[in-house]
Write a protein that binds this DNA or RNA. Sequence first.
DNA 1: ACAACAATGATGTCAACGACAACTTCGTGC
DNA 2: GCACGAAGTTGTCGTTGACATCATTGTTGT
Lengths: 197, 197
Amino acid sequence: MRERPYHHGNLRTALLEQAERTVRERGVQELSLRELARDVGVSHGAPRRHFPDRQALLDALAIAGFERLGSELREAMDGACEDFRGRVQATATAYIRFATRDAALLELMFAGKHQQPSGELQMAAESAFAVMLELIEQGQREGALDSGERERVGLVLFATIQGIAALVTGGMVAVEQVDELVADAIAHFLRGSHAAA
Amino acid sequence: MRERPYHHGNLRTALLEQAERTVRERGVQELSLRELARDVGVSHGAPRRHFPDRQALLDALAIAGFERLGSELREAMDGACEDFRGRVQATATAYIRFATRDAALLELMFAGKHQQPSGELQMAAESAFAVMLELIEQGQREGALDSGERERVGLVLFATIQGIAALVTGGMVAVEQVDELVADAIAHFLRGSHAAA
DNA sequence: ACAACAATGATGTCAACGACAACTTCGTGC
DNA sequence: GCACGAAGTTGTCGTTGACATCATTGTTGT
């Protein structure tokens, strides 16, 4: 019977997957390299080959998180083929869903602790936020938004959504109130998006 | 010459002050009870008399943070005796200033990790946010805001501000852009605050 | 085929940490 | 003036992250 082979085969991925699971269930704080190694069935020194230190693991988790967030956002946006408001609502809801399901992961992604912008992480983040910018662009083409600088309007929208996520994960807003709050915020945003009457 | 006396005199306060300093300079993660004790000139077991475990210290830090945040917000709001927009802007700016100066502390306050709502912490948080609600109330009295449910409008505003803070501390918005972004967001908010034209 | 060689994993060690227990010093009320 | 409790000290245990060294495997050039 095969004692587990010397080479795990694909340890890096296994570590990332188990890490994401642990982070989701028990938070970043509780994530321990050694426990991770035990869970995956490998010695405590093994992870070091793939992640020189704990922060490197966290950075990799953040990158994976941004990639997943980006595709969920894009999927939501593309799926809602209705009007602009519908797309905004769908995208925002997808963001909040991600934020509530993976609160600890999102916190990790936002943590400015990445002393090295690390390039790759920055790319992943920008790629995820690009979806938001596309959304704004569409809105401007359809005339639902003023054609001011895209980034400025986009930032306001993005900040609002991120803020709602923070309120929810911080426990200041009950989960049942989320949809209502998102709807309120979007209505507010759209009303404010045309030059003064 | 007085070897330092056996009793520190007021260790609890000294610990909290040093802890806040350390958190501001090096983040929550780097905060160690033992190092704290060394910094204050006391043995590694001493803090335990005042904080049964690390989380208790963090909770106390969060409470102090909410109290400070609350008074800074109130001060900003009361100081700006101009129109409603000016008060909103002043309060929002004060919030962002707190968030950038004490990013790690704010993260700590928002962390849902307080398994025990702990009563006292909840009270401190509500007391800080009460300032925001007062602001909204004033706006409604002055007719600058629709008189919808206060909490809903307030939440949208608060979420936006908190979101901007997150963007800044997450490094996604440069510090120089903050004032502009806040102004944009508030303009957006106020334009959206009247029932459809 | 086979000998380097690099990649990957295992093992051992170290300092630091948080939690806990046992002991000591101090101040206060009876 | 004494007993008692609050506040601080010392020692210990198990865990952790980082590092160094060793073992096993896969690959590559000849």
